[in-house]
Nucleic acid binder design. Structure first.
Length: 840
RNA sequence: GCCGGGAUGGCGGAAUUGGUAGACGCACGGGACUCAAAAUCCCGCGUUGGCGACAACGUGGGGGUUCGAUUCCCCCUCCCGGCACCA
């Protein structure tokens, strides 16, 4: 054994050993319970970043821990290989996206291996591989045939100078990132997946996901956004038609003073026909990006259409406005505006001088006098008393009642008014109750090159024809030149010219590709059937699924995780898999930040993990990442601290080295021990218990490490070299090595071989705490007076409560407060912990 | 704008179910070893007052519940993530 910690040698040695022995190759033939641990696969951007190191270390710690706990573990790895950055890099470097991607994969794979991950590399997949995307093309055609994929027009960001569709990311302050041109909204036909058909199940099944963080489930619930409201129809004056709106607040209908439609709404288009100013305004609304954040933060703009509608209940004439804050994609693309009880309507009404009419008020006691009261006038204009208005729209208190003069609704609560108004609307055939989802169908078409080709052929006589399985995959040509304007396959007749699979006539291929979320929505199932060449997934998927532990960034809390849940249900419903949900337990890791913001290439604040690994080794890198912060919180990068992790490993190495200088010895099992050694064993077994709980239940790796550090600090204070001391020291070191091995596997494999010659740590089980060593003879109580710490009290184990109370008030640090007529009011005893003497 | 999360010493963080605030590590200060430095080891380290014993204050800000609040409730500020074409 070397005196110094030779991290380079032992890490290389361990990694060679795992590869040679196929230590992490997973098999379906095992009598152990299975444990499928999945980390979100990386986009092959070029080099590993700290977020990867953090993500994959967490997954590896959990995998290795469960392997030691006796599970049949599978931990796979692959590449989310399609995407926009490859196209950008290809343009910049004058190369093909495929070449760039494959080179990145090679490099990053080497880096991942250097991290010492217990990954089954036999199952590696890359989503840009035709063997992979063939099957999602097949699924696409199946869903298309079932009507779960359909075509409709929808709005994209259009760069009028480059003549290309832009991603939201490519729109900077309303301008195209390359051309600098003002971005326009443009409607184009695209394919959509009917995720809304699964909205109810996606919502309800969240309740089954006990292993998911509450915050993620809340975000998904809000995203799906089931609401209970009403359709309300406003007859359009002078036309034989109604304007339909959806509202979650029909109880406030009597306060509606105008209606507003989105710029894209048919009524807006109609009104603009003879109104050039309105047409200009609508054109102005169509400028800027389609991103909701941009729309929602834009200054409120609107214009009167000159059209009027009739209020369905009171017959009032209400103006129709076009407003930029009304979203075409939600509800009906039109809203009834109740400025008195909606903040956005209020702001808009104030800006454009529209009437504001309060219909609810907060009434503590609703007296007969109030019920009979009648307001002074039907219309009252209130202006600019922000505070007053905020009270009105913020409150939906149970004590609110409808105070509008409007006939029979007077005096009703919110819920009563909701029901009464809904009933009346239904009677008049001008509305009805409706539940509505905020969730929209998922547009999967992308007008980009580096993605999976959509397997549809357009035939002049047959229409849209899905490509039959026998003709799949539709292979994306990889040897292309990127010129920065449009997708190469859109200009490549050898790609798009084809024959119709139905009639055999001349036809053209779809040249749009799929959203890359499509690939990442089912990869978890493919790992289980990675080499299946006659089906998307086979029976092995039903062995491994659902994923027992999924680990990945919190930024994926909504979109990716929702789409993957959706795909799981789609695959279930086409008979491929049996489980309802893909991920039983979810750990969302926080961001790795530097200088307060996410480490990213675009921000130029990255720290290269390669340097860390080269200088200190993978174990130090892993230890530091696990120690610096709890996994689900953001981690602020600091260069200092890595040194501390390295120092700890050196100390651990040295402790084993010095211990073994006197030869090997068996770990303590039985025999009398000094108090000092008894206490050390107490701490050891408490630590074993805590670390197991920290890994398994709490996922609190930072505290697991600190408790092992404390144990090592305690061990360092023990000096003897007699057999009893050395056997306890052996017991401590052996267990420390086991406890740390999921986090720092290389050094632990080496140290184990030294501590227990001819034994392999990979065969060792997770240690069990020795309950006998954990029995304490006396209990240390904290004694407070009026909640303030005043001293400590040591009593024999199992001392009666009354005796503890009596002893407490006898202590000097308590009795000194019992002067000037003060007396003990109450004594609170928290068993094995604390005494609080209340004195007054 | 909307949804979700966060804020604790000089810094990262701990306090698991309402029960000792600051574990563990970093940085810093002092000492040992050394010709010297590095490395290593030992001691100290929330703020204020005090020689000291000790006392008061202290978990983003304001209020509340409780014997007791970093933890629960209400209001506010700032920061981070997401907002459907970044992945």
């Amino acid at each position: 054994m070397q005196q110094q910690y030779p991290f380079k040698d032992i890490e290389q040695q361990a990694q060679n050993d795992w590869e040679t022995n196929q230590t992490f190759a997973a098999s379906e033939t095992s009598d152990k319970p299975k444990y499928y641990c999945l980390s979100m696969f990386p986009y092959p951007s070029g080099r590993l970043h700290m977020g990867h190191v953090r993500n994959y270390t967490i997954g590896d710690v959990l995998s290795r821990f469960h392997k030691m706990k006796g599970f049949n573990v599978m931990q796979p790895m692959g590449w989310d290989a399609f995407g926009l950055p490859a196209e950008n890099a290809a343009i910049k470097n004058n190369t093909a996206p495929a070449k760039w991607t494959y080179e990145n994969i090679e490099h990053m794979k080497t880096q991942l291996k250097q991290l010492g991950l217990g990954v089954d590399w036999n199952r590696e997949i890359a989503t840009c591989n035709p063997e992979y995307y063939k099957w999602e093309q097949w699924l696409f055609t199946e869903l298309f045939k079932k009507g779960l994929i359909y075509k409709k027009t929808s709005t994209v960001n259009w760069d009028p100078v480059d003549g290309t569709v832009l991603a939201n990311e490519q729109v900077i302050d309303g301008r195209g990132w390359r051309s600098g041109a003002l971005v326009e909204k443009r409607d184009i036909p695209q394919y959509f997946m009917k995720i809304t058909a699964y909205a109810e199940e996606l919502l309800n099944d969240l309740d089954k996901l006990d292993g998911w963080p509450e915050q993620v489930k809340t975000m998904q619930r809000n995203w799906i956004g089931k609401s209970y409201g009403c359709e309300v129809e406003f007859p359009i004056i002078g036309q034989n038609a109604n304007l339909k709106v959806y509202s979650t607040r029909p109880d406030t209908l009597m306060g509606a003073t105008y209606v507003a439609v989105a710029a894209e709404h048919a009524l807006a288009t109609l009104a603009a026909q003879n109104n050039p100013k309105l047409a200009d305004f609508i054109a102005e609304c169509k400028r800027g990006s389609v991103a909701e954040a941009d729309v929602a933060t834009a200054e409120k703009k609107g214009m009167d259409t000159g059209l009027f509608v009739t209020h369905p209940l009171n017959g009032e004439k209400l103006p129709v406005w076009v407003a930029n804050y009304v979203l075409m994609g939600y509800g009906e693309g039109a809203v009834m505006a109740v400025p008195a009880h909606d903040e956005r309507d209020f702001e808009f009404a104030n800006k454009f001088g529209l009437p504001i009419k309060q219909v609810f008020n907060h009434v503590i006691t609703f007296t007969e006098e109030l019920r009979n009261a009648r307001p002074k006038s039907d219309y009252e204009h209130y202006y600019f008393d922000d505070k007053l208005w905020k009270d009105w729209y913020a409150s939906k208190s149970i004590d609110d009642v409808l105070v509008s003069m409007q006939g029979s609704y007077f005096g009703l609560s919110h819920q009563e008014a909701f029901d009464a108004i809904a009933t009346d609307l239904e009677t008049k055939k001008l509305g009805k109750k409706r539940t509505q989802f905020r969730l929209r169908d998922w547009g999967v078409s992308r007008q980009r090159y580096w993605g999976c080709p959509i397997p549809i052929v357009h035939c002049a006589s047959c229409g849209e024809e899905p490509v039959p399985l026998a003709q799949l995959p539709v292979v994306l040509p990889e040897d292309v030149k990127m010129d920065g304007v449009g997708s190469p396959i859109k200009k490549d007749p050898s790609f798009y010219e084809t024959t119709c699979p139905t009639c055999g006539g001349k036809a053209t291929r779809e040249t749009d590709t799929l959203d890359t979320f499509f690939e990442s929505s089912w990869y978890f199932a493919r790992y289980a059937s990675f080499d299946s060449n006659n089906a998307m997934v086979d029976e092995r998927a039903n062995y491994w699924l659902p994923v027992d532990q999924y680990v990945g960034g919190i930024e994926h809390a909504i979109l990716h995780l929702l789409y993957a849940r959706f795909f799981n249900k789609l695959m279930r419903d086409v008979g491929l898999i049996k489980n309802d949900e893909p991920f039983t337990n979810l750990l969302t890791q926080g961001m790795v930040l530097k200088d307060g913001s996410k480490m990213s290439k675009s921000k130029g604040n990255t720290v290269d993990p390669q340097e860390l690994i080269d200088t200190y080794g993978a174990d130090t890198a892993r230890l530091f990442m696990m120690f610096a912060a709890p996994p689900d919180q953001s981690l602020e990068w600091a260069d200092s601290g890595v040194e501390g992790a390295s120092r700890f490993l050196k100390r651990l190495w040295k402790a084993c080295y010095e211990h073994l200088q006197l030869g090997t010895i068996a770990a303590y099992t039985t025999g009398d021990l000094s108090t000092e050694l008894k206490n050390l064993r107490l701490q050891l077994h408490q630590t074993i218990e805590k670390v197991g709980d920290d890994y398994g239940r709490r996922h609190s790796f930072n505290t697991a490490i600190s408790s092992v550090m404390e144990l090592m600090n305690a061990l360092a204070k023990i000096e003897g070299t007699d057999d009893a001391t050395r056997s306890v020291r052996q017991e401590v070191l052996q267990n420390v090595v086991l406890l740390l091995s999921p986090i720092v596997p290389h050094i632990c494999q080496s140290l184990w071989a030294e501590l227990k010659p001819n034994s392999r740590i990979l065969d060792a089980d997770w240690p069990m705490p020795d309950k006998a060593a954990m029995v304490q003879d006396s209990i240390e109580y904290v004694v407070q007076v009026n909640g303030k710490l005043r001293g400590n009290l040591s009593v024999p184990r199992e001392t009666e409560k009354a005796a503890i109370e009596a002893l407490s008030i006898q202590q000097d640090f308590v009795s000194k407060f019992l002067v000037d007529g003060a007396s003990v009011r109450k004594i609170i005893v928290v068993p094995n912990k604390l005494v609080n003497v209340v004195i007054s």
